[in-house]
Simulated scan of single mutants.
Amino acid sequence: MTWNGWRVLVACLLAALGSSTVSIIYSNDAARQSEQRVSEQQRLSEQKWCDLVTTWDDTYKARPPSTPTGQDLAAKLSKLRDSFNCPTDHRR
């Protein structure tokens, strides 16, 4: 192969390597930003659920239900509150 042929081959390889590197960097950045958006959306969703579950749980603790079904529901809400790591003091 001639000198010019080698130069063209090296230039093509460097261009391919450069475009691959840029593509990988761009993809990683896009994935990181997407994970951050999903994480924030999940946090907000869990906060809304926490508010609802905490309100119900506080209500059932203030006035415990008298029926077996109500008592079962109150126990499950309390466990759900714990699994969501909701605060024990609703007023925060």
Rank of each mutant, 00 (worst) to 15 (best):
N28H: 12
L13C: 04
A11G: 04
T88Q: 14
T21R: 08
T69L: 09
A16L: 11
N4D: 11
K61G: 01
E35M: 04
N4W: 09
D29N: 15
S27R: 07
K76W: 07
D82G: 05
R91D: 12
A11C: 02
W49V: 00
I25W: 08
R91V: 14
Q42W: 09
S39D: 11
E35S: 02
L9A: 12
T2S: 10
K48G: 06
L80P: 01
N4C: 00
T69R: 10
S34K: 04
S66H: 00
Q47E: 03
P87D: 06
Q36H: 15
T69K: 09
V38M: 12
P87C: 04
G18H: 06
K48W: 10
L44T: 10
L9F: 09
L44W: 07
G18N: 06
Q36C: 06
A11F: 03
P87A: 08
T67I: 01
T59N: 09
G18C: 08
R37F: 05
K76A: 02
K48Y: 15
T67E: 01
P64S: 01
E35N: 06
D58K: 05
A30D: 12
R63G: 06
Q47T: 05
H90I: 14
K79L: 13
I25F: 11
L52Q: 13
P65F: 01
S39V: 07
R37G: 02
D57I: 00
